[in-house]
Design a protein around this nucleic acid. Structure first.
Length: 444
DNA sequence: CTGGGGACGGGGCCC
DNA sequence: CGGGCCCCGTCCCCA
């Protein structure tokens, strides 16, 4: 005989224990703020903690400490509350960061809910083409988070909540969100407040220029490229997600500073929005729910949203770097791994297979003309000028080192003798590091 | 310190 | 609607 209330009761008790710091054997440090929790609970809820705690499981007598800098304490609070209550306090303001954090912590349930949250917000506006939310936004609780919870009863929470399919949430049935959709359309107002978004110190956007399109602030000049750098250093896709958080924050901060009205409270956010062109003809625009950007086509919006969600479905097989678009992957691959540019890297002259040859270093390939090759004193395929891998000292002797490196490589890395083939895989971000089985045709 | 170039991200739009 | 191309802006590295 199953007593359904037991699970609820158990979780409530654990939550109480957490709040009273009873039996907490794990401290999580998020940007200086300490959260107490139970190892067992974290282990059961997060793939990240599962890994972390299983590594330190032998030292069970010592309290475990985990430190995070990639998301804010507020975000972690939302996640921790969910872990201990089954209630996920999602808002248009925090959904991106919660999603990124969930991705980092490998909490697929939350990840899927966040995705659905975003998707739902788009679907709503899709259905309500010309239905302005202005009237709806007069609701007394316009900024209340929408609460995702499991089937357990929302005992003590007076706020509206929405049923979330709790079991098998890895495959969230989107149909089950119809209730949420209606809730969303009447309740959820995606807005970003300055207070929330300016909490964390970020690079001042004084140098930021407005983007050319529609005065759009993409904010990528700062955060995106920070992440880009981080990616280069670590190859960790989570950095791109955290960068995306920064970006969104920066956008909001910038907008707040510049008094930009996103119209989130009084316009349909995610999209079709009527616009009058010069000829007074109605023209549909699709509005991004996270920034001021509008596009003509839904597909373009979908593409644009990747810059908010941090989704990078196209990983490079050669170096692991991930891209938001196939064409970017292809360009990267051809340039970096296939020496696609028929230009001598040294003298910048045009080279062909006859007038030059391909030099390889690691996974990178480029071309040198025979002259530069000779000047570099290479007998055979030399290696290169690549800062990432080139020896830092004795620069004068770089070339011989490269050549040597190449000789050594010839034995152990025979596969590098073969040019890389670009196999495009569309990787599901749910499991960032797991190669997707869905292999697209080889593009070459 | 600075300018040039490479790499990359993102938008517009055509097919 | 997806794929692809072109263009532009930004960052980073290096000479």
């Amino acid at each position: 005989m199953e007593i359904s209330s037991h699970q609820v009761h158990l979780l409530e008790q654990l939550n109480e224990q957490r709040k009273q710091d009873l039996f907490c054997d794990c401290s999580i440090l998020v940007e200086g703020k300490v959260f107490k929790a139970h190892r067992n609970v974290l282990f059961a809820s997060s793939g990240y903690f599962k890994m972390l705690l299983s590594q330190s499981s032998k030292e069970t007598t010592q309290p475990t400490t985990a430190t995070f800098e990639v998301f804010s304490p507020e975000t972690f609070m939302v996640i921790l509350d969910f872990v201990y209550s089954g209630i996920l306090s999602l808002t248009g303001q925090n959904v991106i960061e919660v999603m990124s954090a969930a991705s980092y912590l490998q909490m697929t349930d939350i990840l899927n809910v966040c995705k659905t949250f975003i998707k739902s917000s788009l679907d709503i506006n899709e259905k309500d083409h010309y239905l302005s939310l202005s009237a709806k936004s007069t609701n007394s609780e316009p900024t209340h988070p929408s609460l995702y919870r499991s089937r357990r009863k929302a005992k003590s929470n007076p706020r509206r909540s929405c049923s979330v399919p709790e079991e098998k949430t890895n495959t969230v049935n989107e149909n089950s969100w119809s209730g949420y959709n209606s809730y969303l359309s009447s309740q959820v107002i995606l807005q970003r407040t300055e207070t929330q978004l300016s909490k964390r110190g970020r690079k001042q956007s004084t140098t930021r220029k407005r983007r050319k399109h529609l005065g759009l602030s993409q904010g990528r000049d700062c955060a995106q490229h920070k992440s880009h750098k981080a990616e280069r250093a670590s190859g960790d896709c989570s950095t791109s997600e955290s960068s995306h958080i920064s970006r969104v924050r920066e956008e909001a901060k910038f907008d707040a500073e510049n008094n930009v009205d996103h119209g989130y409270n009084h316009e349909s956010e995610a999209v079709p929005k009527r616009d009058l062109d010069s000829g007074d003809l109605p023209r549909m625009r699709f509005k991004c729910p996270f920034c001021t950007h509008t596009v003509k086509r839904r597909a373009d919006l979908k593409r644009h949203l990747r810059c908010h969600t941090g989704e990078r479905p196209y990983p490079c097989d050669a170096c692991g770097k991930r891209f938001t678009r196939l064409e970017h992957l292809r360009n990267h691959f051809q340039t970096i791994h296939q020496a696609g540019k028929l230009i001598c890297r040294k003298c910048k002259r045009h080279v062909t297979d006859l007038t030059g040859c391909v030099v390889q270093q690691g996974t990178r390939r480029y071309r040198l003309c025979h002259k530069c090759l000779a000047e570099a004193n290479f007998d055979s395929i030399p290696d290169d000028l690549d800062a990432e891998h080139s020896p830092t000292s004795s620069t004068g002797n770089k070339c011989s080192k490269w050549a040597l490196e190449e000789e050594q490589k010839s034995d152990e890395e025979t596969m590098e003798e073969e040019p890389y083939n670009l196999v495009v895989r569309h990787v599901n971000n749910d499991i960032p590091d797991e190669a997707d089985e869905k292999v697209k045709p080889n593009l070459r």
